[in-house]
Amino acid sequence: MGPASFPVLRYSGFMTPFVARLDCPGSTSEKAGTSAACEGCPNQSVCASGAPKAPDPAIEGIRLKMASVKHKILVLSGKGGVGKSTFSANLAHALASDGTKEVAVLDVDICGPSIPKIMGLEGEQVHQSGSGWSPVYVEDNLAVMSVGFLLGSPDDAVIWRGPKKNGMIKQFLRDVDWGELDYLIVDTPPGTSDEHLSVVQYLSGAGIDGAVIITTPQEVSLQDVRKEIRFCQKVKLPIIGVVENMSGFVCPKCKNTSQIFPPTTGGAQRMCEDLSLPLLGQVPLDPRIGRNCDQGKSFLNEVPESPASMTYRTIIQTQKYCIIITPEVLLLCIQTTLSGLHLRH
């Protein structure tokens, strides 16, 4: 431990000039570059120059483009590897199983795009048409866009700093020929950084229905997820609810459950109670989920009777994006409606 007589460092306090502050007024603010918090920020001169003060004109372009998209849903988590992409893909498949609905997935994980593999689209390419980039279609009513389609080989690394990633996301939202959509599901990388800020900012004109937050049960994951929730609150992004993934593993041989990622602080349930958020469901660890992801198959279609896929459907149901009409789900649908949950449209 450091000598007690020395001051404790806080990054919002007196630290040496470079450290950025959370109380940044933002580059579009009147006070950009001139507030007390800007003192010593590496971006100060850029902000103070006034150049980026006007909102990016792309926001308006994106608003017009997104006018034909009914619902926009983000899938978020502070933690990596918790199953955001898996959930995004399954949600999309479930929604698209209603042939009358048009569904799309946008993968904004620029450095680690998994959606092409998980949705069985590796090696596909994006084509340019008169009205923009054409997404890749899994089915007639299920479109996908990912930076993975723009790479020459699956080994290609996207070694980009923030601004380039932001430019790509802007293009995805503005220049892709999405057409009329009922649902646009946006899969994100872990964290609270460029990609997240950009998606939220670029869609600020168009409006986002809300975010589904994915976590695993252990505190190591929840501590990052709480930060993501804080991020949502800061940028005023509504939270549809939380999904706990990888909750327990049922041994295929002896049927006993093991908590591989133990909910030592009460898991997602406790966090949701503390923060007054809806817990949408708990998906168990199931080796078949991983296998189907690797093979690019839809878990919901492949193993429709497993407990894990039941939970997926329950989750999709509570969001009122109910598509699969099985007796259980229908029952749940009626129950949730009766219990007067606020259901988004």
Binding site: L9, M15, F18, R161, K227, V235
Partner: peptide
């Protein structure tokens, strides 16, 4: 360096680079 452990560091690249430099 965080006063509140749930605080989110909502920083774009240049700021992250600056802190890592420190």
């Amino acid at each position: 360096l965080l006063e509140d452990p749930d605080e989110a560091i909502v920083w774009r690249g240049p700021r992250k680079t600056a802190l890592i430099g420190q």
